[in-house]
Amino acid sequence: MGRATNMTEQTQSYLFLAVLLGVAVAFPLVMLGVARLWATVYSPAKPGPAKAAPYECGLESTGDAWVQLRSGYYLYAIVFLIFDVEALLLLPFAVAFTSLPVGAFVAILVFLLLLVEGLVWAWQKGVLEWN
């Protein structure tokens, strides 16, 4: 007996989820269905080439939307990362500089060295040259 009431309580506590799900599915379906019905009865579809064309401020679109960017731009992303991340981490480092233990100081130096190494590599590769 006790077990049975437990079961009904449990199913009831999950019942509202099922009801919510039903409403969530039915509501948009009813809306879309009514809109569809209205369109077929009262509003005949009139498609056309200009209406179906992409919107570009009234101009006719030219060319392809699938432009490709040069993959060589990854270098800019990397160099940007070097300067950006470095600046971000250097600020708290500078603030806490006087109270840092030796271990932390060395760790930061290693980190900086890694970044500078990357910079030297990029420099040698000629990335910083603008042409």
Partner: peptide, 11 residues
């Protein structure tokens, strides 16, 4: 452009 914009509006 104005006419094309009008055409692109839905009825």
């Amino acid at each position: 452009l104005v006419v094309r914009l009008y055409n692109q509006m839905p009825a």
